[in-house]
Simulated assay, not measured.
Amino acid sequence: MIQKPFTAQSLREVLQWGLHPDSAPHTHQEIAEWCSRYCQVHEEELERSGDKSSALRIADDVDAQWELFLINTYSGAELQRLDFSKVRLPVEWFAGWLAKLKP
Score class of each variant (00 low, 15 high):
residue 69 F to T: 04
residue 86 K to S: 12
residue 11 L to N: 02
residue 49 S to L: 11
residue 57 R to V: 05
residue 19 L to D: 09
residue 2 I to N: 08
residue 29 Q to N: 15
residue 60 D to G: 12
residue 44 E to Y: 15
residue 61 D to P: 00
residue 72 N to D: 15
residue 94 F to M: 13
residue 86 K to W: 04
residue 71 I to S: 14
residue 43 E to D: 09
residue 21 P to V: 03
residue 33 E to N: 07
residue 45 E to P: 01
residue 9 Q to P: 00
residue 83 D to Y: 09
residue 98 L to T: 03
residue 78 E to M: 11
residue 59 A to T: 06
residue 27 T to K: 00
residue 96 G to F: 09
residue 3 Q to H: 14
residue 35 C to E: 01
residue 13 E to C: 08
residue 23 S to W: 06
residue 55 A to W: 02
residue 56 L to R: 09
residue 82 L to M: 04
residue 35 C to W: 00
residue 96 G to T: 10
residue 56 L to I: 02
residue 76 G to S: 10
residue 12 R to N: 12
residue 62 V to L: 08
residue 16 Q to W: 05
residue 24 A to H: 01
residue 12 R to C: 13
residue 50 G to D: 09
residue 98 L to Q: 00
residue 89 L to V: 09
residue 74 Y to M: 13
residue 44 E to N: 08
residue 24 A to W: 05
residue 82 L to N: 04
residue 34 W to T: 03
residue 103 P to C: 04
residue 92 E to D: 11
residue 51 D to T: 04
residue 64 A to M: 15
residue 85 S to L: 10
residue 82 L to V: 10
residue 6 F to E: 03
residue 90 P to Q: 14
residue 77 A to H: 05
residue 16 Q to A: 10
residue 89 L to Y: 05
residue 88 R to D: 12
residue 60 D to C: 11
residue 26 H to L: 03
residue 102 K to Y: 12
residue 79 L to G: 05
residue 33 E to L: 11
residue 29 Q to H: 14
residue 65 Q to W: 12
residue 64 A to P: 02
residue 2 I to T: 01
residue 70 L to I: 10
residue 102 K to F: 10
residue 23 S to K: 05
residue 67 E to Q: 14
residue 76 G to W: 02
residue 34 W to M: 00
residue 30 E to V: 02
residue 67 E to H: 15
residue 61 D to Y: 11
residue 24 A to S: 13
residue 72 N to M: 06
residue 77 A to F: 08
residue 41 V to W: 04
residue 98 L to D: 08
residue 87 V to K: 06
residue 47 E to H: 02
residue 41 V to D: 03
residue 32 A to R: 01
residue 6 F to C: 06
residue 39 C to I: 02
residue 19 L to W: 07
residue 65 Q to R: 15
residue 101 L to Y: 06
residue 50 G to L: 14
residue 25 P to E: 01
